[in-house]
Design a binder for these strands. Structure first.
Lengths: 347, 347
DNA sequence: GTGAATTTTGCAACCGGTTGCAATAATTCT
DNA sequence: AGAATTATTGCAACCGGTTGCAAAATTCAC
């Protein structure tokens, strides 16, 4: 009664040995049948495959990882679970990894800021590599993985001239300049940066570039403010404050989701965009293109960034001593409806 | 030169044996030190822990799974990577699982519809259990896991009176009725259902309930339409069509994200909400509360659903023969600004 | 201090695979 | 056909842990 009746899926899984016995071959033969490029005659292979099918066998990836040293597990760690952009990011990462036969082990470090725990747990699971997908974590976070001997890529990380780990992303300083440029070209004279959290390197760099470009432009007034997080609420709250105090003609928001929050604040205040206030975001997330939002923004090529990240992590798994690399992708302004038209033609 | 200098992290990981040698005890002793409730004297434990710290040892979870039969890996499978609600869902799932020492292995089946591959791969990785988080997959999908002997919970799945697998979610039929009720109470006489994909059980049930309630209400005209997906674009496109043909006074949208698409279409057409057209969504995703959206909607208690799902999958891992259960959580209307005020008081 | 009861410990086998190596079988060449 | 070469196969050890069992060490009771 307890022992499953014939034909019924048994509780415990079928193993190599079962297949070997059924096919009348050694366990090695079975193993070889399922290993790419191993030496098996067509005859045995056929026999094994038949037996395997009849039994419904599929090899245990974890057991084999023990000897091969590869789990095909990739840690995907992020702390961005409130920015809708990251749904797209997770979509692309999971698909991209799956397409290469890799499995994402998702780590949410919304609370944590210390890499220690994540590193420990990801090592326990012998992940082949790790992708840190976050622009709000410091470079040291990703570096800690490297120090621990885990191949790592920091996606959306800070571009350093001599990086310690692989970084894939954009040149945030250049983006800041680009935003300044866009505002100048539209004749705005009083502008401001409405950034994400000040501690994020991405925010810092965007501010840097923005300020740098404006400094070299005579007759422009500008200010800088930071939202508490890359989130709608934080953007809205911060924009509310701006509206009460020193209101600018146009804002460069450090992220689309902050721009959306700002937009909401502006509308609540009974002002209109772009007539009263201009807004430009950064990212070009899906929602930015929605017709009732229609946000002018700087597009960050996330598909390319994610593809490159995966490629890089795979490469590093194969050659762990590979020299750290920074892959930076160009951004460009997407013209929509939250800035007034250009008054100057492009340079 | 090749062999790492003392003090430096060696390429290959530290194993049980290394620790045992250093501590001068047997491998069993080390294993026991790291196993909850095993018999070790305080003295050996101390010795082992010291050695382990010095070497930076942490046990290999995969190797131990081989004998314990538990990986603490939970497959989290979904096909909803375009509905912002699911970023919240993933956030809550990953956090909830992590808090219990479980690791989510994320599976994106945006393309796939056949459970075969996912089942195979999740079995290869010996996941302890699987959570299918989707309202657009048929019950048979989750059942296939069960048939394969994998503990499974279907979150956001269809409520069946005699379920074959654990289901956690809401009573979609009741929600449909609730929506109808809300529209009736506000005096709308020409109403419509603007659902998600017709193949999704959630859509079907919401339609069912909606129609059922309206059928029993004299003097109400209603129609039914379906968007191609649970996405903004699909909602917008479908609403455009509605506006060209038989326009209703108010729409029950099968999901918030569809409601947002519809809202966009309405606004593009130069109409206003709720003056010209009323909208009620379903889910109450974060964005629905954003002040410039302010969508009236039916709240689905996702925190509770996710908590229950995790609890249920954990329970099923412990007792695989546990009787399938349906946990249904109540929903309620969240009053915001996309329906005109009630004309009747609540019953 | 002695014997019994209880803890702690190590041995060895096992979890489900992989792989170097030597033995065997199948081909190829002369 | 026989020797030389090449392809296939099984054995046995190993990957990094766990665990039943019996031996050794402690603790307890008297």
């Amino acid at each position: 009664m307890r022992h499953s009746p014939p034909g019924m899926q048994d509780r415990m899984a079928i193993t190599l040995k079962d297949v070997a016995e059924r096919a009348g071959v050694s366990r090695s033969a079975v193993s070889r049948t399922f290993t790419e490029g191993a030496s098996v005659s067509v005859k045995t292979r056929a026999r094994v495959e038949r037996a395997a099918n009849e039994l419904g066998y599929s090899p245990n990836a974890l057991a084999s990882s023990l000897t091969t040293g590869r789990t095909k597990l990739i840690g995907l760690v992020s702390n961005n679970f409130h920015n809708p952009l990251f749904l797209e990011v997770f979509d692309l990462f999971t698909r991209g990894l799956q397409d290469r036969g890799l499995r994402p082990l998702l780590v949410n470090l919304s609370n944590e800021t210390d890499p220690g725990n994540s590193i420990q747990m990801l090592r326990q699971y012998s992940v082949d590599g790790v992708i840190v997908a976050s622009s709000t974590l410091p470079p040291s976070f990703a570096e800690a993985f490297k120090t621990a001997g885990v191949p790592v890529v920091h996606s959306f990380g800070r571009y350093a001239t001599s990086p310690h780990v692989h970084v894939v992303g954009i040149d945030n300083i250049a983006c800041g300049r680009m935003a300044a440029e866009a505002l100048i070209a539209r004749g705005y004279r009083r502008v401001a940066f409405l950034g994400g959290p000040e501690s994020a390197t991405s925010t810092q760099d965007r501010a840097l570039g923005f300020i740098d470009r404006l400094d070299s432009e005579p007759g422009i007034d500008f200010s800088v403010a930071y939202a508490a997080a890359y989130s709608f609420d934080a953007g809205r709250v911060q924009m509310m404050k701006q509206l009460m105090t020193d209101r600018a003609e146009a804002y460069f928001c450090g992220d689309d989701v902050i721009a959306l929050g700002a937009l909401s604040a502006v509308q609540s205040a009974g002002l209109s965009v772009p007539d009263d206030i201009g807004l430009i975001g950064l990212n070009d997330m899906e929602m930015a293109g929605w017709e009732n939002i229609d946000l002018t923004t700087i597009r960050q090529p996330i598909r390319e960034i994610i593809e490159a990240s995966i490629e890089l992590v795979v490469g590093t798994v194969e050659r762990p001593d590979r020299h750290p690399e920074a892959r930076i992708f160009p951004c460009r302004v997407i013209e929509r409806a939250t800035l007034r038209p250009r008054t100057r033609s492009p340079d």
